[in-house]
Amino acid sequence: MKVQVRGQGARRWITIGTIAFGALFFVIGLILAGVSVSFLTDAERARGSVVALEWRNDDHNGASRKTRGNDKPSAYPVVEFTSADGTPREFRDSTGSNPPSYEVGEQVEVLYRADSPEDARINGFASLWLLPLIFGGLGLLIAGIGTGVALAMRGRS
Rank of each mutant, 00 (worst) to 15 (best):
A46Q: 09
G17K: 03
D42A: 12
D42L: 09
G34P: 07
W55N: 08
L40E: 09
A46S: 10
A23K: 00
F21Y: 09
W55G: 05
L32I: 11
F26Y: 02
A33C: 10
R45H: 14
R45P: 10
L24N: 08
G48Y: 02
L30S: 08
A20K: 00
G22M: 01
G69S: 03
G69E: 02
I31S: 05
H60P: 13
S36C: 03
E44D: 12
R68P: 10
A20R: 00
N61T: 15
E54K: 11
S49T: 14
I19E: 02
E54F: 06
F21N: 09
A23D: 00
F39I: 00
L53M: 03
L53H: 04
G48A: 01
G22T: 00
I28S: 08
K66F: 14
A33P: 10
R47E: 14
A43Y: 00
L32Q: 11
G48H: 04
K66D: 15
G29N: 07
E44C: 12
F21L: 12
W55V: 06
R65C: 12
R56M: 11
V50R: 04
V27K: 00
T67V: 15
A46K: 08
A46D: 02
T41A: 10
V50E: 07
V35F: 10
N57T: 14
R47Q: 13
N61C: 14
G34W: 03
S49R: 15
V35A: 10
F26T: 08
R68D: 09
E54Q: 10
A20S: 03
V51T: 12
F39L: 02
W55F: 06
H60N: 13
I31E: 08
